[in-house]
């Protein structure tokens, strides 16, 4: 198993690590059982994601996909943010080894979970956004 240079770059120098104190939405997905937990914080102003941070417990791919997913979502409108798929995260990282594809699914789910939390807090409905699932690994394996 070998990671691409991009994956290694985002693992060694992860972007957006941290917390946002007054986050508009926070999403946590994964569980310790499978070895990956991602927590994404979003700051949303006027329907635009103005900041994104993450904390991740997991392997190199989990850290890299969290880093890339938060990079991709920054500056996007909510509707644009919904279009960020696990495939987009993978492509932006120049691919992932087959056994690590689930990490990109987790990253997509983490973004969605944070958006869901934002919608819940503000009593709004984001079209096309589904409630986050308990264990994403069950859905992707």
């Amino acid at each position: 198993m070998e990671y691409s240079e991009k994956v290694m770059d985002h693992f060694m120098n992860p972007r957006n690590v941290g917390e946002i104190e007054d986050a508009s939405g926070v999403g946590t997905v994964g569980n310790a059982k499978c070895g990956d937990i991602m927590k994404v914080y979003l700051k949303i102003e006027n329907d635009v994601v103005v900041d994104a941070k993450f904390k991740t417990f997991g392997c190199g791919a989990a850290v890299a996909t969290s880093s890339m997913a938060t990079e991709l979502i920054k500056g996007r409108t909510i509707q644009e943010a919904l279009q960020i798929t696990n495939k987009a995260v993978m492509e932006a990282l120049d691919g992932l080894p087959p056994v690590k594809v689930h990490c990109s699914c987790l990253a997509e789910e983490a973004l969605h979970a944070a958006l869901w939390d934002y919608a819940q807090k503000n009593n709004i409905v984001i079209e096309g956004l589904k409630e986050p699932v308990e264990d994403v690994h069950d859905t992707h394996h």
């Binding site: 690590v17 917390e19 937990i37 991602m38 927590k39 904390k55 417990f57």
Partner: peptide, 8 residues
């Protein structure tokens, strides 16, 4: 650990 939600 500084990156870990479990530690936080």
């Amino acid at each position: 650990r500084n990156m870990s939600p479990l530690y936080e």
